[in-house]
Design a protein around this nucleic acid. Structure first.
Length: 213
DNA sequence: TATACGATCACCT
DNA sequence: GGTGATCGTATAC
């Protein structure tokens, strides 16, 4: 089942945790990539100095001030895109960065040094072969830049409503790890966020979440 | 208008 | 461990 708006309207740290184990679906033409989310980071509110929106409302950060469930995409180091989902209420700029996934289905996209979509080589015959073999290979993708490269996400998704979008959306974890079901709850590691040393009292906050195992 | 630099990655030693 | 690639954004002029 697709994640609803209300899922993302909760507190950012909660959303970041809850997203672990959920799946990202990316549809590219007839192809579909299913990716399990295994690492996230929370960027919460105007006072969080690690948050791009802490510097105020700008053209770039505008979507973070808007409705939850929309995509905030930014370019980093001139080369890599990063995918975030807006959280909380309108006017309270917050988002969750998707840092790590496991691709559990879909054709593996060969690594390429650059990001132009036309450089991705997609072979139909390979895809057919993979299907007939019923092969299931899990590919770990750690790092927000790699996540976007693998899922072919670029600025075109900036501002997209991921509650409704047909190309990219979230579905609920199939694990059903509620206490009632008797399965073990997921083990979640809390760590400091990456690359935010400048963020003063916010730099050591453990707002990075990693799914164990 | 100009400039410094970053929520990164790949490749080197 | 270190460095280069590469460009939009914020900030300073």
């Amino acid at each position: 089942m697709r994640l609803t708006r209300s899922f993302f309207q909760q507190k950012t740290l909660q959303v970041a945790k809850n997203l672990l184990g959920c799946f990202l679906i990316r549809k590219i033409g007839r192809r579909q990539i299913i990716a399990r989310i295994i690492e996230t980071e929370a960027y919460r509110g105007p006072k969080d100095l690690a948050n791009h929106a802490s510097k105020g409302r700008t053209k770039r950060t505008e979507v973070m001030f808007g409705q939850a469930g929309h995509a905030y995409i930014y370019l980093i180091y001139g080369m890599y895109y990063c995918l975030n989902v807006v959280t909380e209420r309108i006017g309270y700029p917050s988002a969750v960065l998707i840092r790590g996934i496991e691709i559990i289905n879909g054709l593996k996209i060969p690594n390429s040094k650059f990001q132009e979509p036309n450089k991705y080589h997609i072979s139909n015959s390979k895809f057919q072969k993979r299907r007939t073999n019923n092969e299931l290979r899990i590919t770990k993708v750690i790092g927000p830049g790699k996540v976007c490269r693998e899922l072919q996400i670029d600025k075109g998704f900036h501002g997209a409503d991921l509650i409704k979008d047909k190309r990219l959306y979230f579905i609920r974890s199939a694990d059903g790890f509620s206490r009632r079901s008797g399965t073990n709850p997921p083990k979640i590691k809390r760590l400091p966020r990456v690359g935010v040393d400048y963020a003063k009292e916010y730099k050591d906050k453990k707002w990075r979440f990693v799914l164990e195992g």
